Computed example of a mutant assay.
Amino acid sequence: MLLDVSPESEKRVLLYICPECGDVACGAYSVLVRRERESYVWEGFAYQTSESDLKSAETVGPFIFDASMYKDSVLAASAIE
């Protein structure tokens, strides 16, 4: 999900969700991810308990990642067991 973002759009991605039940209603942290030419940008961090109940974390981000390093890091992290 962290890689599946087109340059024309942005996508809200869950970064952390309740480890016991996996339900957003317990609370989750999410971020808007967008792709630029040579980078990925994380912005619009929020705490949420549903799709429509977002509490913005305005003092966090944005964070900009080099696209090739970002892709390598996401793929490496997904291989961790």
Score class of each variant (00 low, 15 high):
1 M>I: 00
1 M>S: 08
2 L>N: 01
4 D>C: 03
4 D>Y: 02
4 D>P: 01
5 V>K: 01
5 V>F: 07
5 V>Y: 02
6 S>K: 12
6 S>F: 01
7 P>L: 01
7 P>E: 03
7 P>F: 02
7 P>W: 01
10 E>T: 00
10 E>S: 01
11 K>A: 00
13 V>S: 03
14 L>C: 01
14 L>P: 08
15 L>W: 00
16 Y>W: 01
17 I>A: 05
17 I>H: 07
18 C>V: 12
18 C>A: 02
19 P>V: 00
20 E>Y: 06
21 C>D: 15
22 G>S: 07
23 D>G: 11
23 D>W: 08
24 V>I: 13
25 A>Y: 12
26 C>R: 08
26 C>K: 10
28 A>E: 04
28 A>Q: 11
28 A>R: 10
32 L>A: 00
32 L>C: 06
33 V>P: 05
33 V>K: 06
34 R>F: 09
34 R>K: 09
35 R>I: 08
36 E>R: 13
37 R>W: 04
37 R>N: 09
37 R>E: 13
39 S>T: 12
40 Y>R: 10
41 V>C: 06
41 V>K: 08
41 V>Y: 06
42 W>A: 05
43 E>F: 14
43 E>L: 07
44 G>A: 02
45 F>K: 07
45 F>G: 05
46 A>G: 04
47 Y>N: 02
48 Q>T: 05
49 T>H: 08
50 S>V: 03
51 E>W: 12
51 E>D: 10
52 S>L: 10
53 D>Y: 08
54 L>R: 13
56 S>E: 15
58 E>C: 12
58 E>I: 05
59 T>L: 15
62 P>F: 11
62 P>M: 10
63 F>N: 13
63 F>M: 12
63 F>P: 07
63 F>R: 11
63 F>A: 14
64 I>G: 00
64 I>M: 15
67 A>T: 11
67 A>R: 07
67 A>L: 14
68 S>N: 10
68 S>H: 11
68 S>E: 15
69 M>N: 10
69 M>L: 15
69 M>W: 09
71 K>F: 01
72 D>Y: 08
72 D>A: 13
73 S>G: 15
74 V>M: 01
76 A>D: 10
76 A>Q: 14
77 A>N: 10
78 S>D: 14
78 S>W: 03
80 I>S: 00
